[in-house]
Design a binder for these strands. Structure first.
Lengths: 220, 220
DNA sequence: ACAAAATTTGACCCTGGAGTCAATAGATGA
DNA sequence: TCATCTATTGACTCCAGGGTCAAATTTTGT
């Protein structure tokens, strides 16, 4: 009757950490496994179409076990979006910091990286993150915040490029929305492709999106 | 114990039409009402999130009544997509035929019209039609066919424009996909806007998408 | 080796929603 | 007005799937 149901219990967790560090790490690892599997499935088939039994089955456990870590299906989905969304937002932010060179170069890098992550690592999860209303409405706020951070990375480059006279856009927001919409779908288009064909598709999409800021496509 | 359950019974319907013409028209009208209401709801909340009770309620009838016209929820959803998809595909095809002038002009018209229909008339249904996997998988084929026709309208203009040296694209398919992705989301972005603001948003989106074929945005 | 803590199980409850159907109400035409 | 066809109802079945929980199993620290 002990155990720490529903994993987090966030406040207490920081005050007097239950279990040893080793156990905590182990737990964290398990949570991550669950979250990634869930994201995979939710993104692929949609929130409603995936049952917790499905998630459990893919993990070779039972539904009940999931409830040891998450209090509800909604929380699980939200955790999935938050965790993964945070991960690659951070990655893009890092790229943006490190980069030196023109704005076009940076934007191209960001787009390419973003699409690559989406297609290669999280073919499904990205859609969850980017497509409004794909997740349970109750959680919309927590996700919106994250989405804002994500947007900001792209917004900064675009605005900088426009100010520098390098880019031409009709409206920054609209441009952003178009980019997101396209990237959110990209996993579907590239799902079947492998190896070189996939790489080409990603590059082609990147170049196409660069045109949204008035950058003529590169030859090659 | 008679009646013509599940409406169509397609073969027989053409051979020996049941009921008088007047009754048939009336029936068709009812079917259309149902289909439009269903499309509205499905598109807005997603297939799974909408129950037939929801659809019935909005129509001020009972679920059982829907089953008099459609054999299943899936069939209803498919009918919704087919009917509406066919309608506006036809409208775009007509526009393309009538048009005289440059390719850029035609593409701009098509985009603008398409987004306008989406936002004004069927804020929701369009997403059903354009976003892969938003509908029950069993029906995917029937919808894909329709989607093909729809794509063709845009593909023709783009290819013509490229051949004429008016447009620059990295790849026609990729360009098409980006356009569709953006248009599919447009109702979400413009949902809250009304009147002039909405018109502006639509125009801005149109101009932004024109950039995908290398057309600099118009001022104004 | 053993007790306490951490994890997993599987059987169980309960609700929402798809689909059915006999009975009823409403149209229509003779 | 009556008989027949059309349309609608509402009560019903059935089940997938979210969520619960006591008991069993595994892991951990001593």
């Amino acid at each position: 009757m002990t155990g720490y149901p529903h994993g987090m219990a966030r406040q207490e967790l920081t005050e007097r950490a239950p279990g040893t560090e080793r156990i905590q790490r182990k737990r964290g690892k398990r949570v991550k496994e669950i979250v990634e599997t869930a994201a995979e499935l939710f993104g692929e088939h949609g929130y409603d179409a995936v049952s917790l039994d499905d998630v459990a089955e893919r993990l070779d456990v039972t539904k009940g076990s999931l409830y040891y870590y998450f209090p509800s299906k909604e929380e699980l989905a939200t955790a999935a979006i938050e965790t993964l969304g945070d991960e690659w937002t951070a990655r893009l932010e890092r790229l943006a910091e490190q980069h030196e060179g023109g704005h076009a170069g940076l934007l191209r890098t960001l787009l390419h990286e973003h699409i690559t992550i989406a297609v290669r690592d999280y073919p499904a999860a990205l859609r969850l993150f980017l497509v409004p209303r794909a997740w349970p409405t109750a959680q919309a706020d927590r996700i919106k915040e994250l989405r804002g951070r994500h947007d900001a990375v792209f917004r900064r480059v675009i605005e900088a490029g426009v100010d520098a006279g390098e880019f031409t856009v009709t409206g920054v927001d609209t441009t952003l929305q178009c980019m997101h919409a396209a990237m959110a779908q990209s996993p579907l288009w590239c799902a079947r492709l492998r190896g070189k064909a996939r790489g080409n598709a990603i590059s082609e999409l990147t170049e196409t999106l660069m045109m949204l800021v008035g950058q003529p496509p590169r030859t090659g």
